[in-house]
Design a protein around this nucleic acid. Sequence first.
DNA 1: AAATTAATTCGATGAATATCTAATTAATTT
DNA 2: AAATTAATTAGATATTCATCGAATTAATTT
Lengths: 182, 182
Amino acid sequence: MNTPTDPNLLDLFKTLGDAERLKIAGLLANEPLSLTELSQRLELPLNDVSNHLAHLEAQGLLQKEGDAYRLAAKALEQKARAVLAQSHPKVKSDDFEGDDYDRKILSSYIAVDGSLKSIPTQHKKLMVILHHIVKQFQPGIRYPEKQVNEILRRFHEDYAALRRYLVDNRLMAREKGEYWTL
Amino acid sequence: MNTPTDPNLLDLFKTLGDAERLKIAGLLANEPLSLTELSQRLELPLNDVSNHLAHLEAQGLLQKEGDAYRLAAKALEQKARAVLAQSHPKVKSDDFEGDDYDRKILSSYIAVDGSLKSIPTQHKKLMVILHHIVKQFQPGIRYPEKQVNEILRRFHEDYAALRRYLVDNRLMAREKGEYWTL
DNA sequence: AAATTAATTCGATGAATATCTAATTAATTT
DNA sequence: AAATTAATTAGATATTCATCGAATTAATTT
């Protein structure tokens, strides 16, 4: 069962993604209205309004006052925040986990946009970087070279070098122009 | 033509109200991905992903980086704010317009939740209040008494008194148990 | 209690649209 | 330039879901 507070974004968007329901929400944002009043204002049959209200209510978007409904602004606010939270590219936890050394290398070589400032020459540092980069590839999927290049280019324009390093160090394998992780 | 910035909430909710598109948005919130990559991750045919991306793009939700897409977090943020703005019961402009005297009376008699603190005894003050209340009724609509009571009760528990005042002062008319504004 | 009105529920119809197949166009690679 | 691959577009099918009609239940009024 769905509590109104659990952020099922999909259903929320679905219920708000209907013209009539959005109108209803709009009206109820400004003034409380009863079922009958809504029906009159929108010139919509009573039963349909009732159904629409049920949808909105299921999303925890309404609060009842007597027999009038009002938009639960607080609830909506929370949900809007949930959307923002999800949309903000939170640095994935495993991106910078690992030991202190790794974290230090990563943060010094990787720019805010995720790209490489430069390719390390020291082998130990290089390995840290390569292990970070190889996470971009899904295990079990075979990537054509062109796509590998695309992905690597996001890190550094010399994608060919990165590709070679990855293979040489056995982080990825290649066969007939296809690559996969090991 | 719709600029991506104009807040057409309905279309926004519609595009986000599809499971696949929401997944896509979710993925692109955390990392940039190309069309092909998305297709692989979601195990969805390429052409459909292309269409979904077109939808998202039409809402100004994407920004392109090379051939990878990323969720336009800023844009989404703005839109979320737009939602909040609409949802907040902004005191309707005409609620407190009119001359200074009216405004003064209204603000002294009407509580934050819109209800009446008390019913004025002075006729002049009463008229101000009644004119404010009568705006709750749509011109041209005939309301059964029960509904009139409901609406008036939001202002004061003695809805019968309000109803009588409204009729006596010719702000509303009644016939056979139905009321309407004049 | 009977009758009226309000509100919900059920089933069927229709419209919108996601999904699928196929064809077309655009871009890259050899 | 030919050929391969990537991406878009077009059309057909299927599914989802709002809308409509009616019946049912619940609540108020007389």
